[in-house]
Amino acid sequence: MCSQFISPFRITDGNGFRLSSYDPGDTGPFRKNQKKALMERLENGISYMGSLQEVFYASARHSLLIVLQAMDAAGKDSTIKHVMSGVNPQGCRVDSFKQPSHDELAHDFLWRTTQCLPKRGMIGIFNRSYYEEVLVTKVHPELLEEEGFSPGKADGKFWKDRYKSIRHMEEHLSRNKTHIIKFFLHISPEEQKKRFLDRLDIPEKNWKFSPSDIRERVFWDDYQKAFESMITHTSSSNAPWYIVPADNKWFARIVVLTAIVEKLASLRLEYPDPSAGEKENYPLYKKTLEEETTTKPSQGKKKSTTQSSRPGKKKK
């Protein structure tokens, strides 16, 4: 897939960043009447990503962390569902972080997500993440009391220290071969309203609606400022943010998919080679299999009257 069109959406240095410079309805170089052709492009890209992920999993040399942040109804769940539909579930894990538990609140704010970081060979997807702690808690500082902090002392330094903790953590992960891609799905208030109305009008979507969705809309401007500050302070070349125009779901999915494919392809991984000694035995293994009779080894033998033990376990 051509990745040049996503460059304008990639933020590696937050200096001078302004969220208002990005249009949630943007479709890049594509027109809406090209949607059908782009859906075919999307399917081909999903298939290609599946082949890249297979090598990524087999090599087990790197891990990939994908972070998704957005306002409600921006399409995080559907993006994961569609974009990751071609990967082997064995090599991918999705974790959603909603309201923290009492035990999670008793630890530092990075603790609960640290437990879910992907191991080498795995793709980990965070549907919301540690960034909630500089978003929701910043818009609603009263929640900091549950973490043992005084809301009145959550000044500029407090938030800068949290950004610093996040940057240091991401730098540490990057040094240890965990690659990080972060997506902010940028939706307009008009499109969010439309999607909320769909959740109320369409029975199959009723389950998605929550009264808190309406309550949080009141804080729209506060959240936009929090997102802007988050991206400004935590963008880096090792852990870039992508501002994904999300009013058109098909375009959002193409941006996310292309960024992931670009990252996986850049690693230039190959399937692991067996050791030289092991490969020397391949002709023998092949001959053994080719000369194997069609009779099962157990046929013709009298069944044992004693219960056999499982492999690797001693009989009692």
Rank of each mutant, 00 (worst) to 15 (best):
M1Y: 13
M1W: 11
C2A: 14
S3T: 13
I6P: 00
F9A: 02
N15S: 15
G16L: 08
R18Y: 07
R18A: 09
L19N: 01
S21E: 15
Y22E: 04
D23H: 05
T27D: 06
E43T: 11
Y48R: 13
M49T: 06
G50S: 06
L52C: 06
E54P: 09
F56Q: 07
A60K: 07
A60G: 04
A60W: 07
R61S: 11
S63Y: 03
A70H: 02
M71N: 05
D72C: 10
D72M: 05
I80R: 01
M84S: 01
M84I: 04
S85G: 08
N88H: 05
N88G: 09
P89E: 10
Q90D: 14
Q90F: 13
Q90N: 10
G91I: 08
C92K: 08
S96C: 14
D108W: 06
F109C: 05
L110F: 00
R112M: 04
C116A: 09
K119C: 11
I123F: 01
R128Y: 05
R128T: 05
S129R: 01
Y130A: 01
E132Q: 03
E133F: 04
E133C: 00
V134H: 00
T137H: 10
H140L: 03
E142M: 07
L144Q: 06
E146D: 12
E147N: 14
K160Q: 07
R162F: 00
S165V: 07
S165W: 09
S165C: 08
S174C: 04
K177R: 11
H186G: 02
Q192F: 07
K193S: 14
K194S: 15
D198L: 08
K205Q: 03
N206K: 06
S210C: 12
P211V: 07
S212H: 10
S212E: 07
I214D: 10
D221P: 07
D222N: 04
Y223S: 04
E228M: 13
I231F: 11
V244C: 02
P245A: 00
N248V: 12
W250Q: 07
F251W: 01
A252M: 00
V255E: 00
L264C: 06
A265W: 15
L267W: 11
L269Q: 02
Y271C: 12
P272F: 12
D273P: 12
D273A: 13
D273C: 12
A276R: 13
G277Y: 14
N281E: 15
L289E: 15
E290A: 10
T293K: 09
K296Y: 14
K296H: 14
R310V: 13
